[in-house]
Amino acid sequence: MGKKAKSSKKAWRANISTEHIDDFFEKSTKDALSGGSLTQLPSESLFYVDKSRDLSVKRKIEKHREKVLRCDSLLQRNPFVQAVPSSRQKKSKKTGKEVQTEKDSVQGRPKKDGALDSGMVDIWDDKGENTGKTKKKSKPSIIPAVEVEPPGCSFNPSFESHQDSLACAVADEMQKIYRHELGPKPVPLTVPGEVVDKEDVYFLEVDNGSEDDDQSIENQDEDGDDEHEKRPSITKKVTRVELNRRARRSKQLRAEAEAKKVKQLSKEIDFLPNIIQEIAKEDEEKQKRHLRRVVAKQERLKSRPPRLGKHKFDPAPVQVLLSEEITGSLLKLKGCSTLARDRFKSLEKRGLVVPTAKSGRK
């Protein structure tokens, strides 16, 4: 039998494509799994008109809104940014009632024209300016600003008061002299030397030779000791009896040490009242010493200021007249320009000015 032609009707049925049928089944299966076909849903469920943002109305509002500069917008507080809390909050001395009354009074006041709703204030407005700087209160000095000199320093003093003031002035001067004479002498910068003779040089060389001999003898002794140490040491064998004796001895020493500790502890317990009394006496002595130190410091502050710089305060000498200079009249009194120096020394003495070095200029 011969082959059939492809153009026959039976060949047409064999060559029919079924892809569209397979695609339909796949699509229907997907629609069934996803919840239904989108072609069957109404358009209202698929599309809607968004009326939540009306651009035309927003543009109208922005036109009538006041424009804020960028510098002003930076100064405005951002409500979405929280301030960083401080680790140490300052304790307010005001009570809760006072704070509440202040808040009520602030809320009741009308806002100023210069202040904005954002809390901005005119920086050029000097009214109600509060710099926040607090002045440090200086401690009052114990020393008065103007000290009254003793009666012996008057232009017409009595004989006894004049002699007392004169004795004080002489004592101060003598104290300075003694301090200068008896004080430690400074180290000289140069040491004076003399020319050494030839004979002295010979003796010096001999002394150096003797020192060398001593060093050589010491070196020989050290060498002998080293040789003695290098000799092999003979170790003696320790027997069991010796080991037992050493163990008993160490045990006995430990027992004696423990008994001694117990005895010392019992003795300390017996002396406990005496120890308590000694501690109380020491505390009392410390308190007395502290009190004496405080009183001495106060007395010292009455006569000299606290140490402010590297130079100590040098008090001015007592202005007392000599016996020949006493005339008994202000008209015959010799004038002297010590007012400025006296005021400056008073400032230094009260601790208001740092004492300076004594200048050589007079």
Rank of each mutant, 00 (worst) to 15 (best):
G2W: 11
A5P: 13
S7P: 10
S7G: 13
A14P: 15
D22M: 14
D23R: 09
S28R: 07
D31H: 05
G36Y: 02
S37D: 04
S52P: 06
R65V: 13
R70F: 08
R70A: 14
L75I: 12
K93T: 02
K97G: 00
E98K: 03
E102L: 05
K103A: 02
V106K: 11
K112Q: 07
D113P: 05
A115V: 02
L116E: 14
D126S: 09
N130L: 05
P140H: 08
V148C: 02
C153Y: 00
P157S: 03
S161M: 05
S161H: 07
S161C: 06
Q163V: 06
S165K: 00
L166D: 00
A169C: 03
Y178D: 11
P184N: 05
P186R: 13
V187A: 05
T190R: 10
P192D: 04
K198D: 12
E199R: 03
E199L: 02
L204N: 09
N208C: 07
E211K: 03
E218S: 03
Q220I: 00
E229M: 02
R231W: 14
S233I: 10
I234V: 12
K236C: 15
T239E: 14
T239A: 09
V241Y: 13
V241G: 10
E242V: 02
A247P: 09
R254C: 15
R254D: 15
A255L: 11
E256P: 04
E256S: 04
I269A: 08
I276R: 08
E278T: 15
E282L: 13
K286S: 11
K288D: 12
K288S: 11
R289G: 13
H290I: 15
R292D: 09
R292S: 14
K302V: 03
P305I: 00
G309R: 07
P315S: 08
S323C: 04
I326D: 00
C336E: 15
C336H: 11
T338I: 14
K345V: 01
L347Y: 07
L352S: 05
P355C: 05
P355G: 04
P355Y: 04
A357Y: 12
